[in-house]
């Protein structure tokens, strides 16, 4: 069974169509790296899979583990096992990071973290941020670390990560990416990662590169090769030459 299937998805904001008929299939226990130019709709797609507004689905379906979730609320999707790492997580005054982490763990706010949880918090270098308001005054890297730790605590089956590596220094990237890889391996979950950079490929084992161009997703093997190709030739050319290669193979 596919873990996620997106069929002919049309998504808009305030009447303006952003994605016009996207198709995507993700398999269980696989990691996918998604590339695409700015404004191609990567965040729109990933937010729509999670059910985040203001994106509205006007037609098409999203099916998660055999269940149509197109009209489900965000919390229902989260409870089914989808988790989203936001590209721009909001600041929330008055709510402490420790409270949010406990919510992710489905823990009573009055109980303390156990040893294992504490060491993960420490590994993410967030021990000193527990009493701080969520994301308020956090640097880019601190935000992403907090975001990823929340996701691991949520124990999802599908991780949607929107540019987890943007605004993150090399050390934080290494930490975040290797923790994600560890989680994926241990839990057997799938990941769909939007990125503009190749560095994350040093840590995430993936056999799938997807390029979003004009509402069409083109998937190829070998993300690192695809990334190098995009760098050299740009998105359009990369897609057309890869498709030519595939065509040639098919005709042999």
């Amino acid at each position: 069974m596919h873990i996620l299937e997106v069929r002919d998805l049309v998504v808009g904001v305030e009447g303006k169509t952003i994605l016009s008929g996207v198709n995507l299939i993700l398999e269980e226990k696989e990691s996918y790296i998604m590339f695409g130019p700015n404004g191609s709709g990567k965040s729109t797609l990933i937010n729509t899979i999670m059910g985040i507004k203001p994106y509205e689905v006007s037609s098409g379906n999203i099916v998660f583990m055999g269940e149509d979730i197109t009209n489900k609320s965000v919390d229902e999707r989260a409870k089914l096992g989808i988790s989203l790492g936001f590209q721009y997580p909001p600041e929330i005054t008055g709510i402490k990071l420790s409270d949010l982490l406990k919510i992710c763990l489905d823990k009573d706010l009055k109980t303390d973290f156990n040893q294992e949880e504490k060491s993960l918090i420490e590994a993410f270098r967030l021990s000193n941020f527990l009493e701080r308001n969520i994301n308020v005054g956090f640097s880019g890297g601190e935000r992403k670390r907090a975001e990823l730790l929340q996701m691991i605590f949520l124990k999802p089956k599908l991780l949607l990560l929107d540019e987890p590596d943007s605004g993150v220094d090399v050390e934080s990237l290494k930490l975040i990416a290797s923790e994600i890889q560890k989680y994926i391996e241990n839990s057997g979950s799938s990941t769909f990662i939007v990125t503009h950079k190749g560095d994350i490929l040093d840590y995430i084992k993936s056999k799938h590169a997807c390029i979003l161009l004009d509402s069409k997703i083109h998937c190829f093997p070998e993300p690192r090769h695809i990334y190098e190709l995009i760098k050299k030739k740009g998105y359009d050319e990369c897609v057309s030459c890869q498709e030519k290669i595939i065509e040639r193979w098919n005709n042999v």
């Binding site: 965000v74 919390d75 409870k79 997580p89 709510i95 919510i103 489905d106």
Partner: peptide, 17 residues
């Protein structure tokens, strides 16, 4: 929506905020 993505219902998220 952010809090709902962490499994809180709409009402729980509102009262927490």
């Amino acid at each position: 929506l952010y809090l709902m993505s962490r499994k809180l219902t709409n009402d729980q998220a509102v009262s927490m905020i």
